[in-house]
Amino acid sequence: MSGLLEVESLTRRFGGLVAVDGLSFSVGAGEIMGLLGPNGSGKTTVLNLLSGALRPDLGSIALRGQAIAGMPAHRIARLGVARTFQIVRPLASFTCHDNVLTGLAFGKRRAWGTQARADADTLLDRVGLARARDALPGALTYIDQKRLELARALALQPDLLLLDEWLAGLNPTELEQGIALIQSLRGQGITILLVEHVMDAIRSLCDRCLVMNTGRLIASGLPGEVLAHPEVVRAYLGDDDA
């Protein structure tokens, strides 16, 4: 058996600090996997290693059986891994349309011209931003900027989408819309690895969850089981409450 993403003994140090310490897991095609853990447990570093923002010190990452560990970010992106950032990073001088166009132009399809421009509009419509087509990202609300970033990531036509706290900071209505949007991506066959703190979202979205603490994997399995795991409770709440 082999999943879409196979991670084996992934390790990354920063000076003396081991941010990710011998992490192994696999994500099956079409799965929505949650990546949980207290702040500073190494979740974002894992995403950075997967997306090519950082090079691992040790370990292997395979996407559809192809080794991608240590590849530059742009090659990983072209192979079908897209991501959003914990703090939104739209291209500030680009209109929403051109932000999405960038993903289309350099992603798997390398689309250009009239068709690409039409596709960009379709994607904007998909995330509910059609009205803001020619606006600059600075003029958007926070949720709309997050939508924009998702549209740009989808423009790469990814097989694997990495979401870094994409649902954080949304109000209840927005959260509901956001969850529905992610659900709809699964229907399209996109595999999703999401770092998240919003428990409602984790319960309703994730097929399985991984929990990290101080760089190590401390639990994995169904969301309900994992969240009740004693070590997970201890990691989040401290020893006294366990």
Partner: peptide
Amino acid sequence: GLALRAIGDDETVARHSGIDA
């Protein structure tokens, strides 16, 4: 041209959008 403008805005994002900066 699009790639260069993206790099000028945010190189990390550009690289993650598949641009060989």
